[in-house]
Design a binder for these strands. Structure first.
Length: 255
DNA sequence: CTCCTATCCTGCGAGC
DNA sequence: TGCTCGCAGGATAGGA
């Protein structure tokens, strides 16, 4: 989706006022007439910057933004942003697990205030990661999915990173050695880098900006492979529930 | 404070 | 075939 140079917001068309939670429609309507100065990302949130605040958007698991031509409306289009140049941006989200919110100019927001480092940025450091894990007895899988530890590690990539690091997801965070932590740190970065290069994981609705499917789902080594042979040792991949989420691991390779 | 659970929402696939 | 049920995902409220 190509945006015109700093497109001007003409109006919002909320086809329903809520996604996972309510949309602050009045606050967002105050942005009418403003230009979209940039579109940025923090953790899994998109931020549309204007001179009077930000539109915050989270895609949930099935959300997408696209340019919507006349007649191009689809079921589950929840919000349209009409631009002054006549074009329209549409947010579509069949499962309505996404978020839309307003963030004031100072950038403070309950969604953003407690976020840890970006996993691919320099601010994600082994030392801090180590001390963070050392401070919790929670399972390491739970800890790395906590956005206060590091953002961006969802359920799929948590299992995959732990497999590559040879660490069992149930290990307590404070039980990891320094070298195990360094390995995990490296594999989190590696898995996310590779997944991004492959265009992400299209397991249900997720597609790239141009509509193409991601390819990383073909490279899962444990995720959603319960009972299948581990590619390294031939043992069976196991599934357990942690924090209400499925975790996949190889009991022989991961200790 | 930390940690855990339930909840939000809808579509889909498995099993009967 | 048509139905029910459980699960998927990230974030967060609320209770222990």
């Amino acid at each position: 989706m190509m945006l015109a140079e700093k497109p001007q917001i003409e109006d919002f068309d909320f086809r329903r006022p809520d996604l996972r939670g309510p949309i602050p429609v009045d606050r967002l309507r105050e942005l009418r007439g403003e230009r979209i100065l940039s579109v940025r990302r923090r953790a899994k949130f998109l931020l549309f910057e204007t001179a009077r605040g930000f539109i915050l958007s989270h895609l949930g698991m099935t959300g997408s933004w696209r340019e919507v031509s006349e007649g191009g409306e689809r079921a589950h289009d929840h919000v349209y942003i009409r631009l002054a140049d006549g074009r329209r941006l549409g947010f579509r989200d069949p499962r309505r697990f996404g978020v839309m919110d307003f963030v004031p100019l100072d950038g403070t927001s309950p969604h953003l205030d407690q976020l840890g480092p970006e996993p691919l940025g320099e601010e994600f450091e082994v030392d801090e990661f180590f001390s963070r894990l050392r401070s919790t007895a929670r399972a390491v899988k739970i800890a790395i999915m906590d956005p206060r530890t590091v953002v961006g590690v969802g359920n799929i990539y948590a299992s995959e990173a732990l497999f590559r690091a040879r660490i069992r997801p149930s290990r307590p965070g404070n039980g990891l050695s320094r070298s195990e932590t360094a390995r995990l740190h490296r594999e989190i970065r590696a898995i996310l880098t590779e997944a991004i290069e492959a265009g992400g994981s299209s397991i249900s609705d997720y597609v790239q900006a141009d509509g193409a499917n991601g390819r990383f789902q073909d490279r899962f080594r444990v995720y959603d492979r319960e009972g299948e042979p581990c590619g390294l040792c031939g043992g069976r991949v196991r599934r357990v529930i942690q924090g209400g989420r499925s975790s996949f691991f190889c009991p022989r390779c991961q200790r």
